[in-house]
């Protein structure tokens, strides 16, 4: 499928070689969570960006090289923090189970 990626969101029109991509899927008991919010926090814990998950629970960030934390918020669930390292030219895939 053209443009399809492991993360589930299309990368059509994006120069992946120039981006440090962090993406993944949020699930609860194995089911995708389409009502979650994923926040990207920098190495000091400062908020950098936030996206709502897609209907299939997927999300994506264009970050920079280095260490990041993903904080996932969802209804009736405590926030979940997940550490991730990003590097230009690669895609960091993260599975987040609530």
């Amino acid at each position: 499928m053209c443009g399809a990626t492991e993360g589930g969101l299309s990368l059509d029109g994006i120069n992946v070689a120039k981006e440090a991509i962090i993406q993944g899927q949020v699930t609860k008991a194995g089911d995708p969570v389409g009502t979650a919010y994923v926040r990207l926090l920098d190495r000091t814990g400062e908020f950098t960006a936030e996206v709502p998950t897609s209907a299939s629970g997927h999300f994506r960030f264009f970050a920079g090289d280095g260490d990041w934390t993903l904080r996932t918020l969802a209804p009736q669930t405590d926030p979940v923090d997940t550490a991730v390292a990003a590097a230009t030219g690669s895609i960091a895939e993260v599975a987040i189970a609530l």
């Binding site: 994006i14 400062e46 960006a49 994506r60 960030f61």
Partner: peptide, 18 residues
Amino acid sequence: RSPDEYAGRLLAPAHLPQ
């Protein structure tokens, strides 16, 4: 903007292509 945009390490918010 975020500290990384301020410092010039990023040009756009991290959920958008740079």
